[in-house]
């Protein structure tokens, strides 16, 4: 009985009842310490819209660069917006932010110095010294002064570069500033193979049209670019990269086409010994055979053949709007 009275006495205190009804943690427990890395804070005015934060963010889509289209503000601002429901509060975005003062601040962070290459890159920018005309337009536009001059040559300091791509827009020489995608090299190889293979097969299909081409005349044809591009997009789903690859590949492509007219062949077997990759073989039943996969298109067989069995054409390509222009020209090589 005494214990019951003690309990009643103990719990009937006013302070106790107050605490029971309005329980609350103390403020100092709920407060965040000074060094706590909270969600990043964005100062819109400082942003140079370089996209370093979006490239560096370890999550897939926590930071998005958005454009302010508010009519009341005269200047259109581009600034990063952070989605708190995805952000992992690592503070990496504020570490890589190159603007001074920083656009994104997040707790107390390591002050980044020039010697740290931090932005995880998928793209690298390289200046081709052979094509560069040293107009230095890129140095003026570069927001982080990554383009340096050394021995009268311009080069990009990869440790400073933030991959904003502004230099490519001002560069007057096509191909002087190169974009290299380092991430999906294998897929790019596949795309290049696909492009060459399809173009070669197109030419071979239309072989009958330019069989009897003169040495001085040329044959022209064109094919649409769309189906080829769609095939490439299946391998890499990046519109820019595929367009870039197509332009570079097709502009440079210089195909050599070798045709064989087997009716004229007399099985002299001169070409068999000459072929450097042993693509041409001979056996009694089939006569002289050429293995297309092994063939290097070196044109040695064309030069050796005394009966005009082998014919050799140069094919060039050019992109114009939505079509690929194909030009076939008979070889100018002299024959022995």
């Amino acid at each position: 009985m005494s214990s019951v009275i003690w309990y009643l006495y103990e719990f009937a205190k006013k302070a106790w009842i107050d605490k029971f009804t309005t329980a609350k943690s103390e403020k100092e427990i709920m407060d965040k310490p000074d060094r706590f890395r909270d969600f990043p804070q964005v100062t819109k005015e400082n942003c140079i819209s370089c996209g370093a934060c979006t490239a560096a963010c370890p999550t897939p889509s926590a930071i998005k660069l958005i454009r302010n289209t508010d009519a009341t503000i005269n200047e259109i601002l581009t600034f990063p917006e952070i989605d708190n429901s995805i952000c992992i509060r690592c503070g990496f975005c504020s570490e890589v932010c190159p603007s001074i003062p920083k656009t994104i601040t997040c707790g107390e962070n390591h002050e980044i110095t020039e010697e740290f290459q931090i932005i995880p890159t998928e793209i690298k920018y390289v200046i081709d010294d052979y094509l560069c005309i040293r107009c230095k337009k890129c140095t003026k536009v570069c927001p982080v002064d990554a383009i340096e001059e050394q021995d009268n040559k311009l080069r990009i300091n990869q440790k400073k570069c933030i991959n904003c791509g502004k230099c490519t827009k001002v560069c007057p020489v096509k191909g002087s500033l190169k974009i290299i995608y380092v991430n999906n090299v294998e897929e790019q190889k596949q795309v290049i193979k696909l492009i060459t293979n399809t173009l070669e097969s197109v030419v071979e299909e239309n072989e009958y049209q330019f069989k009897d081409l003169d040495k001085n005349s040329i044959f022209r044809m064109q094919i649409p670019i769309k189906p080829l591009k769609d095939k490439c997009l299946e391998i890499i789903n990046m519109e820019d990269l595929v367009q870039d690859l197509l332009e570079k590949m097709i502009d440079r492509l210089n195909l050599r086409v070798i045709t064989w007219d087997m009716d004229k062949c007399n099985n002299c077997r001169l070409c068999v010994a000459e072929c450097p990759s042993s693509a041409i073989t001979y056996n009694k039943n089939d006569g002289v055979q050429r293995d297309i996969d092994k063939c290097l298109r070196c044109s040695i067989c064309y030069q050796t053949c005394p009966f005009y069995v082998v014919k050799f054409y140069n094919v060039r390509f050019l992109i114009e709007d939505d079509v690929i222009l194909i030009t076939v020209q008979s070889s100018q090589l002299s024959r022995s």
Partner: peptide, 12 residues
């Protein structure tokens, strides 16, 4: 946390 909302770093 952010995982149930967006998948966070794992949703790649």
């Amino acid at each position: 946390g952010s995982c149930p909302v967006s998948g966070d770093v794992f949703n790649q």
